[in-house]
């Protein structure tokens, strides 16, 4: 029997509202707004109030998928990452680093965006890295 609230930042728009994820025994059970937060001041919009709703949706991807014979089939992480590494290395050798493009994401964390552009620039060797800031 464990109940606590995790203070986090809303995953929807760019306002930056804070919300509490209510956690009971390692399961999300709801959202509570954060009083005294400088941005959201104890309020949320309907999206924030439902921010936990999609996390455990049945459609969540649970394993890597690899296309085989035209179909996406489940694969291990090792298999999927090895395939990517091999393919990207081959394409880079064949057509140069600028034949590869990387999309960073406005939905991922700063740290993840930092890493993916570092990956694109240092490991692949291209500045073909962008995200949907314009969309």
């Amino acid at each position: 029997m464990e109940y606590h609230n995790v203070l986090t930042t809303c995953p929807y728009c760019g306002t930056g509202c804070a919300l509490h994820l209510q956690v009971l025994d390692h399961q999300l059970v709801g959202v509570l707004p954060a009083k005294n937060h400088p941005i959201s001041q104890g309020g949320l919009c309907i999206k924030g109030w439902n921010a936990h709703a999609f996390v455990n949706h049945k459609d969540r991807l649970q394993t890597p998928l690899v296309r085989k014979g035209g179909k996406l089939v489940t694969a291990t992480w090792d298999e999927a990452l090895a395939l990517i590494a091999e393919k990207l290395s081959a394409l880079k050798a064949e057509s140069g680093p600028d034949s590869i493009g990387v999309f960073a994401s406005a939905k991922c964390t700063n740290e993840e965006n930092y890493l993916i552009q570092k990956f694109a620039r240092a490991v692949i060797g291209t500045n073909n890295v962008d995200h949907c800031a314009r969309l």
Binding site: C13, G14, A106, K107, Y114, Q117, R121, H131
Partner: peptide, 16 residues
């Protein structure tokens, strides 16, 4: 900014 971390994504060099 429209997305929760579009600002951060730009700040982190997620731009060409």
């Amino acid at each position: 900014r429209g997305q929760n971390n579009v600002q951060g994504s730009c700040d982190m060099g997620g731009l060409p």
